[in-house]
Nucleic acid binder design. Structure first.
Length: 137
DNA sequence: GCCAACGTTGGC
DNA sequence: GCCAACGTTGGC
């Protein structure tokens, strides 16, 4: 199993809505690097859900329900979507400021490549986020 | 509101 | 194919 992180503006699509709708099609990615990561997602992979903008924190854990398929919101077949479903919120959201200070987490792509919206997470980073988030699966 | 980082576009 | 100009994202 692989670990990932997706970034979203809570004003666009917050974690609470993913929970309320019990999952969603992750559409609208229009960046090749992010697209390639989306394409590499496998059913059952775990996904950290990060709120960008004013909030700037990892807030929940999701799972890949459906692997890559053509993004219905795109004009071109170059773009793909996956389906995500919520697993559980982090008991304690992990803010970006804390991530930047943590020796394990400061190397996350979230920090090193701020504009990327879909990215892989290492197992060590994954464990540390759950630890700081006081959450177990 | 500003700015750094980065991606895209278009002229050459 | 290069690069300047421009647009966007996201943190501060």
């Amino acid at each position: 199993m692989q670990y990932w992180l997706v970034k979203q503006e809570p004003g666009e699509y917050p974690w609470t809505r993913l929970v309320r709708e019990n999952g969603t099609a992750w559409t609208g990615v229009r960046n090749y690097q992010a697209r390639n990561y989306l394409r590499a997602m496998r059913k059952g992979d775990r996904v950290l859900f990060y709120h960008s903008g004013k909030e700037r924190a990892v807030v929940g854990i999701a799972r890949v329900r459906q692997e890559a398929y053509p993004d219905p919101t795109a004009d071109s077949p170059d773009w793909i979507a996956v389906d995500l479903e919520p697993l559980r919120p982090l008991t304690q959201p992990v803010p970006l400021a804390q991530i930047k200070k943590d020796p394990v987490l400061r190397d996350m792509l979230l920090v090193r490549q701020a504009r990327l919206s879909v990215m892989p997470v290492t197992p060590a980073q994954w464990r540390r986020i759950l630890e700081l988030g006081q959450t177990e699966l």
